[in-house]
Nucleic acid binder design. Structure first.
Lengths: 217, 217
DNA sequence: GTCCTATCTGGACAATGTTTAGATAGCACC
DNA sequence: GGTGCTATCTAAACATTGTCCAGATAGGAC
């Protein structure tokens, strides 16, 4: 058989199953294609090709093409969560926590634009926020604690919820808009992309609150 | 010929060419499909079918599929511009202008979710903001004037530009996030979608500034 | 060693974006 | 008023995509 050699070749590198952990390999292949060839090239067949399997193979691990890209998106959300966690931990003054979260969020989106769009699209297709955004320990919870550290009354639940959503909306908006090339001049004026992001976020409500209390003090 | 009758039928309503103003007809067909069957169904062939022409016909009016959907998106931007203009005009107190713009922007996106996403995608594919957003008389200019009315120093060009961008980012962020079904409970608590949108925007920097000056006064 | 089941392949199908050659019709010109 | 020109449209074809199905393959349980 022609593909007997192929099977052996793939089995050589000690993978558990027929072709190893295809599920994982497909997700990795998907990200590779996304980064190198853009979102338009991210087809099921291309992913299968990149992983070295037939076009039908992915259907044993994912119900759909959507299901596969949802898995890729999920990886993205995990990394974003990690970045948020790290950013808040890195802030010396807890009052800067939210601001750092915002910068980290936007920076992640700017460094992985295609992935971020995939992440949002995938979430929005089911009209449901990704689990990692809702998770207490990584997304929603981190923002809420940062807001409390800034001075939002933790007992005013309505206000706290609204502020959390607002912070999330603002970060998403900046993340997606910051890519337009109209802003390149402004970025240079401000000395780079990160200062630009900070400047925009500073104009946005809760993100500016630390600045205000800072100025007031 | 089979299509001779068809041609006559379309020529009856006084259109200039073979099948009339196909360019326009295709854009309208595109929007109809987008509304009724969602963005996934918006294929070139489906649009041609809906307009009653062959799959190759659109290529005489649009260079690409992208070019066609860009035309659909362009219509969307025009309507959004009109909505913004109207919202600002309707505000009694000029200090409420920006706030009204924000609500109108988000409401438009919520009423035409598929179209709004198409608009953003189409703009972001060429990494270039849509012309209507940059236009002095409809997009950028309206926001800037509303900001000046709110008290932003018109001579501080850097701050004015940053504030304009921030306002745009915030509106975009809320527009896209407001669709998640996690917020439905909150919307009910606040008495509908518009109050919800207002509440979020009020937590976002410049949109809240009128509220602050209002409270201060 | 034999069966079971998960996993993969090859081939097929409909649908899509796009191109090509050829038909059609409005328009200018003689 | 007929003749060509050119824009517009059709029909047919091509490669590619998502998806499904029958059959091959192999790891694990008994």
């Amino acid at each position: 058989m022609a593909h007997a050699g192929m099977t052996r070749e793939l089995a050589q590198d000690g993978r558990p199953y027929h072709h190893g952990d295809l599920s994982r390999a497909l997700v990795l292949a998907g990200r590779r294609i996304l980064e190198k060839e853009g979102p338009a090239a991210l087809s099921l067949r291309a992913v299968a090709r990149e992983a070295g399997v037939s076009p039908a193979a992915p259907y044993h691990h994912f119900k759909d093409k959507c299901d596969l890209i949802a898995a890729v998106a999920n990886e993205g959300w995990q990394e974003l969560s990690a970045a948020i966690l790290e950013a808040r931990a890195k802030a010396k003054d807890p009052r800067h926590g939210l601001s750092e979260i915002g910068v980290a969020y936007v920076c992640f989106a700017r460094e992985n634009p295609a992935l971020y769009r995939l992440m949002y699209d995938s979430a929005c297709d089911r009209e449901d926020m990704p689990d990692h955004a809702k998770d207490e320990s990584s997304g929603y919870g981190q923002v809420r604690e940062a807001l409390i550290a800034i001075g939002i009354d933790p007992h005013n639940d309505l206000d706290l919820r609204l502020a959390t959503i607002a912070a999330w909306c603002a970060a998403h908006g900046v993340a997606e808009m910051a890519g337009f090339k109209e802003f390149e001049g402004l970025k240079e004026e401000l000395g780079g992309e990160v200062p630009f992001i900070r400047a925009i976020l500073d104009h946005l409500g809760i993100y500016a609150r630390h600045a205000r209390t800072h100025h007031d003090a």
